[in-house]
Simulated scan of single mutants.
Amino acid sequence: MDLARRLFLSQGAKMTVGAAFVPLASVAQAGINDQPPRRGGDPARRYAMLIDLRRCIGCQACTVACHIENQTPLGKFRTIVSQTEVQSLETAEPAQFMLPRLCNHCDNPPCVPVCPVQATWQREDGIVVVDSDRCVGCAYCVQACPYDARFINDRTQTADKCTFCAHRLEAGLLPACVESCVGGARIIGDLNDPESQIARMVEQYRDELMVLQPDKNTRPHVFYLGMDARFVTRPAAEPSLWTVRNGEGEELGYEYAEH
């Protein structure tokens, strides 16, 4: 029996981690949303990312590497590491919490069915992509994403987002953010390959993994290990001293779109 079927629902925030491993075909047949048929990519694969927060030091190397690799406009990012200050549950003292954020490449992506021209779709390997030649820049998908993972590219005037660096994966390379992570906190791979590092880690830590905003039922495929449960939804936290800023100089702290 494959990994997707062996992982089952647990409780709380972990429930969506289990639900995320429903096979792609089952999701499509269930008619969960009206997204167009999946196309492109290897149907034998299901890419996902596991972020080990125990190893993340908030250095922003992933943010910089992604920015350089994908040539996003100044102040626009496909991935960032939000750094916030919270009260330690153990000591009640101020504590820093780092949360890498990117597109979650959901199995039930709310960004896909809202596109009026089907410019965004999900590949058969699970990666959600955007056709910039087809996109009209209406930003419906930007508003639909509950993870604030999309933006309108100032240069192209089309939707932009993380693609797991699909062009690098297809060349046998790691995504820029994974390759540059000095702590080895980001692990990407094929969940359908039981010998892959991510499949082994999901099996080992499945009772500890969490996803963001599990109540949205998006079936995200970015999993967090070592997550402070307060950060599954919007926490009571303050941006830290060192934060990422957009082109207008505004801090990009821990914020999710309200949907």
Rank of each mutant, 00 (worst) to 15 (best):
S196P: 03
N108V: 11
A171G: 05
E90I: 10
V244L: 06
Q213S: 10
P116F: 10
C165T: 09
G12A: 14
A119N: 04
P109V: 05
P43S: 12
R38G: 02
A95N: 00
C62M: 01
A149T: 02
F223Y: 15
M15L: 15
V232T: 14
E195H: 11
V182A: 13
V114S: 04
K161E: 07
R6L: 14
P194N: 04
R206K: 14
A65Y: 01
I198N: 05
R101P: 00
D154E: 13
L241S: 11
D42V: 03
Q60Y: 10
M201A: 12
D207H: 12
V17W: 07
C177T: 02
W121Y: 12
I187V: 13
G12L: 15
G226Y: 04
W242P: 02
V211Q: 04
G41V: 03
V182G: 08
Q143H: 10
P109Y: 08
G172F: 08
D148E: 13
G40E: 14
S240W: 08
D228C: 02
T72P: 00
D148I: 00
A166V: 15
D133M: 05
T163E: 03
A236W: 06
I152W: 03
E248R: 15
D52T: 00
R230K: 06
R219I: 02
G40W: 08
E90Q: 15
G12R: 13
L252P: 07
L89D: 04
V86L: 07
H221W: 11
L9G: 13
L3M: 13
Y224H: 09
V117A: 01
G183V: 02
G184F: 09
G75W: 03
C59R: 07
T79I: 11
W121P: 00
G12K: 10
V117K: 08
